[in-house]
Design a protein around this nucleic acid. Structure first.
Lengths: 219, 219
DNA sequence: TTTCCAACTTGTCAACGTCAAGATGGAGGA
DNA sequence: TCCTCCATCTTGACGTTGACAAGTTGGAAA
């Protein structure tokens, strides 16, 4: 029963033992790092396992396959997106809360470009996953809530909100801006790294859009 | 010098010989088919070669690597996108030409979902490729042209057009709608296959957006 | 203390992208 | 007409990947 033969193993500080302790969390963390460094196309399951200090087959026991891990990362992304929307919204005065929501959306996208890309790429994630669907829905619901408050309207219950052109217009505008900005195709900044420039530009774009609708009356 | 040993070879009808004749075009065609059938994630170079009836290493002589072929397909996509914008624009009455441009944009995206996704996915294509850059720019320029005509404004020369919030708002709105619709996250149709429903909804969304700006005066 | 089983490892497979080296045959010159 | 050249295409190989199968480990419950 000598030393463990090969494999000095990294297992970071805690250096548990054969059993990692919290491999699932470590893999998610590694996956986010890989996405950040190498983008969506550069993601590999084996690299995640390497960074977590486990064998290439270990992730399967926690996430099934590569798509399972990516789905988890995407769900986490939607939760952060929702938080970012809420935070930015609550920083704005009463008449600008819808714009604030959009700015929070864009800020998240620019801060986590690869994750944002993953979240909206069908085929890489398990679209049927319940956790993902709930988190994704929540991010959209912030728009609906904020829109309803801003315009003082109440949609009847049911799916009608999703088919209201005004709400979907807001979402499409914000999502389009975020998507293009992440790819460096938006406005003054060729690179998404110039976040502040892009955020200022986003405000200018969203401000003009709001200037029509029913009410920007502080209520 | 008997029959060619193995490989019955398909080479479609023309059944040239050792030299394909127009392998580059055949590979592009195959790539589009693969993208349509299997999506961006299901794309492989070897499958394209198989469909073109050549060996797995043949594509390299025409496109370098996989990215080279995808770049070509993306450039073709932008050219079609531009044509679709122009066509739909010219079907609209004078006051609705900007909306028409957007509808052409959405129609292309829904008709070629995988190609559309490819076109706007950095990392899969060679962003420095000149042909691609030109084709991409042309698709955006249709928006600028149409916007300028609709509002009867003339931007000074230079990059200023790209930083005008009103123009970029139009593009972001349309691009966001197209992106979300392709992924089945837009409005009344869960599936992008219900093109007509989505096109009607797109018109409703874009119509509302136009109702503020400076002029929808037919000129 | 023993037993059990979730967690992890090792080994293997087909498929992929890319590279190197060889084979083919049409075009242009003798 | 024949020959030579070289762009075009093939064959074979290498390293990497995701997935699967079977074996190993060790903490927790009995």
């Amino acid at each position: 029963m000598e030393q463990r033969r090969k494999k000095p193993a990294r297992r970071s500080a805690r250096e548990k033992t054969y059993h990692h302790g919290d491999l699932a969390a470590a893999l998610v963390e590694a996956a986010e790092a890989v996405l950040t460094e190498r983008g969506v196309e550069g993601f590999t399951l084996r690299e995640c396992a390497r960074r977590a200090g486990v064998s290439h087959a270990a992730p399967a026991h926690h996430f099934g396959d590569a798509r399972g891990l990516l789905t988890e990362v995407a769900a986490l992304g939607f939760e952060r997106l929702t938080a970012s929307e809420r935070e930015a919204r609550d920083e704005e005065p009463a008449g600008k809360r819808l714009i604030g929501t959009g700015l929070g959306y864009v800020r998240f996208a620019l801060s986590h470009p690869a994750q944002f890309q993953l979240m909206f790429q069908k085929g890489l994630v398990d679209h049927a996953n319940e956790r993902l669907a709930t988190a994704s829905r929540a991010a959209f619901d912030v728009f609906i809530e904020t829109y309803m408050q801003a315009n003082d309207v109440a949609f009847p219950e049911g799916m009608f909100k999703d088919t209201d052109p005004s709400v979907m217009r807001e979402w499409a505008l914000v999502h389009g801006f975020a998507t293009l900005a992440v790819q460096g195709q938006m406005g003054p900044a060729a690179s998404p790294s110039e976040i502040q420039n892009l955020m200022n530009f986003a405000r200018a774009v969203f401000d003009g859009a709001q200037s029509h609708g029913s009410s920007q009356n502080p209520r």
